[in-house]
Amino acid sequence: MVHTLRQTSGTTLTSRENWGTLFLILPALVFIASWFLIPLGQLFALSLSSEAGPLASYAELIGSSVFRRVFVNTMVLACIVTIICVVLAYPTAYLLTKLRGFWFSVALYCVLVPFWISVLVRTFSWMLLLERNGPINSFLMYSGITTSPINMLFNNFSVYLGMVHVLLPYAIFPMYSSMLRVDNRLLQASEGLGARGTTTFLRVYLPLTMPGVLAGGAFVLLLALGFYITPTLLGGLQNLTAAMLIDNFVNERLVWPLAAAASFILLGLVLGILALASKFLSLGSLVGMR
């Protein structure tokens, strides 16, 4: 009797647990469906809604040399920013692994705090620093390096600088965590076997930390492709990116099908990188860095 009772209560409990799990998951799911999946679905329908035929918008974007150049420029910009970030992030991540105590905390906060600060505020700070009468130009003129102010704003230089500044932490953290996993005994073994420091680095340390380098690089690349605020504020007319082109289609030229198609091409590029990088990339860690 007791046995059967326990069994029935057991089964009701599991079915109640299933309902409970569904109840916990459903609100977020409904929200994402209604504010993310359905809007993107509508955007996809829009991209196929050109009067000239379903694929006409995509054909126009790919066929036009002007639009193609914007996409190529965006990719070149994203790739250069990624290379700069990876090169600068590696020694920084390495320094993080070597610091202890107070200085480690200081260094960590240098990487962590920028994550929290508004991209808009950071970009505005750069505009104030780089402008003709800004402190950097004053310093350069005061120290006699130049006699007239240098144009550092609204050109390639300011776009690269601003984007590298925002994206560097995304490269530093994956590299740092892959460096933490390196077994120091391997380095000692390499040196014990007579390898020079450079050889140990190139043959042991670099290969072991390569997953972190690739993950960091992939994060930066896929975020850089969709950048909007920094290039819009810091760039000149020649620094048109795909995101700015989409904005232009929506707000200036009012051509929704082109805007929708351009965003799906951009998304295709991002997903392509994600697929290539999926081996060593965990999306949770992109969010978990903060």
Binding site: W35, F36, P39, L40, Q42, L43, L46, L222, L225, G226, Y228, A243, I246, D247, V250, W256, A259, A260, S263, F264, L266, L267, V270, L271, L274, L283, L286
Partner: peptide, 13 residues
């Protein structure tokens, strides 16, 4: 992961 500009115009619409 989806570019913010894309989410923006989709939600705008």
């Amino acid at each position: 992961i989806v570019p913010a500009i894309m989410i923006s115009i989709a939600i705008y619409y």
